[in-house]
Design a protein around this nucleic acid. Structure first.
Lengths: 123, 123
DNA sequence: TATGTATATATGTTTTTAACATATAAGGAG
DNA sequence: CTCCTTATATGTTAAAAACATATATACATA
């Protein structure tokens, strides 16, 4: 991701704060599912250095459930250990929509940065 | 920024982590200056809710100086209290360049999210 | 039967960032 | 002298990310 060699990537990921949340909401809107599968699908969104931290996934699910953004029920059918099946609530959908506005604004912000950056280095 | 009314903006700013750093480096590259002026110029980059936190600005300057990304000297000339004039070092410039790559990647990531979001809601 | 691996959820701990608040001081205006 | 602007700095708290570990089911295979 980061191409600094002298400084061991001092810019870290520069990832958007809490970006995992809208990704999880969107995935759950597309198809209600459980944490483990969600974790794998999150790689689509660039949480790919290894897998996204299971701790982050499960804790976010619980937190969003507390906040009423998702709801869950135990799925004991099928093989393997029981799964907790999550789906998005109407409140969660509202939040997902507001995230999309927010993300759009953030893209503009980052593009402003790049334009200004390029004025200095690519002309 | 966030348009959720029921939830007091649960998506918060969703700002890019540590985004203030590349902005400061870019501004200092454009023109070496001191913290207070930097603070005002940062509004260009969307740190606009009031002013960007002075604490953030000054602490980041000190931290970047420790890391060798910027350097400073006291400016006692002129009116008002003394200013600490900062400028970017070659190392800081390297980091700025790696940030630009990182930011470009993050825009792609956010755009991927939006495309996928729109497939669900704008078709 | 013991061992390992994949699936699945959960929590503990530490570090890093962000947010909010406050302290200090120079110098000019009134 | 008091207030405002400019200027830098630090203290405290809260939130988020990063890293580590614990637990349990079920299946494969040696």
């Amino acid at each position: 991701m980061c191409n600094s060699h002298k400084h061991e990537c001092e810019c870290h990921s520069g990832q958007m704060r809490r970006f995992i949340q809208p990704c999880m909401l969107l995935l759950l809107y597309e198809k209600p599912t459980h944490g483990y599968e969600l974790m794998e699908k999150l790689r689509d969104f660039g949480f790919e250095n290894g897998n996204p931290d299971p701790g982050a996934v499960y804790r976010n699910l619980r937190k969003m459930e507390e906040e009423g953004l998702v709801e869950s029920k135990w799925e004991t059918e099928g093989t393997g250990p029981a799964k907790r099946l999550y789906s998005v609530t109407p409140e969660g959908l509202d939040i997902l929509h507001s995230w999309s506005v927010n993300i759009r604004n953030n893209i503009k912000r980052l593009e402003y940065f790049l334009e200004r950056y390029e004025k200095n280095f690519n002309d």
